[in-house]
């Protein structure tokens, strides 16, 4: 039986009727039409589907849309404000933190969470903080530098 959910996505409230089994990531991509959040695996490992739910980075492939009811969601599309890139987005561009770009939205959301909790992380802390996000292109080094760039920028 379908259920009604109310969520705020990137600052905009909305209401939808969804099957309880609908995964949050499918809800975002197929119902809301926000396709920046990607799906890279089926086992909650790759992190391409990472979004912020009530301020916490989560894997939207491992959450039912109904579990997000009444929640506030930020996706990659909602990260820039007034056309200005978030420092983590900027860092990824400046430091070549992406190649094919598929892991990138999730990677950026994870980067945002790392810096929310630790504004001045070490390289090791960044690498540990990315445990839940796989990238096959970059070897992560430029991703680490991108997050360091953002950390620096956000501190100053």
């Amino acid at each position: 039986m379908k259920q009604v959910i109310q969520v705020t996505i990137n600052g905009k409230p909305r209401q939808d009727e969804v099957e309880p089994r609908l995964l949050l990531v499918h809800y975002l991509r197929d119902v809301v039409g926000l396709t920046g959040t990607h799906i890279g695996c089926e086992t909650s490992i790759c992190g391409a589907c990472t979004v912020l739910l009530n301020g916490a980075a989560v894997k939207s492939c491992t959450i039912l849309a109904v579990q997000a009811n009444k929640g506030e969601i930020v996706t990659i599309e909602g990260l820039a404000t007034n056309g200005k890139l978030h420092p983590v987005q900027e860092g990824f561009w400046e430091r070549h933190g992406l190649q094919c770009g598929f892991c990138t939205p999730g990677m950026i959301m994870a980067g945002v969470q790392i810096l929310q909790r630790n504004p001045n992380p070490t390289e090791e802390q960044i690498r540990e903080g990315l445990e839940g996000n796989l990238c096959r292109c970059t070897g992560y080094q430029h991703i680490v530098e991108a997050i360091q760039y953002a950390a620096q920028k956000m501190r100053t």
């Binding site: 909650s44 992190g47 790392i114 839940g132």
Partner: peptide, 12 residues
């Protein structure tokens, strides 16, 4: 706790 899964998993 920090040894469990990853940041996203630990959040949920």
């Amino acid at each position: 706790a920090p040894y469990i899964g990853d940041v996203q998993v630990r959040n949920r």
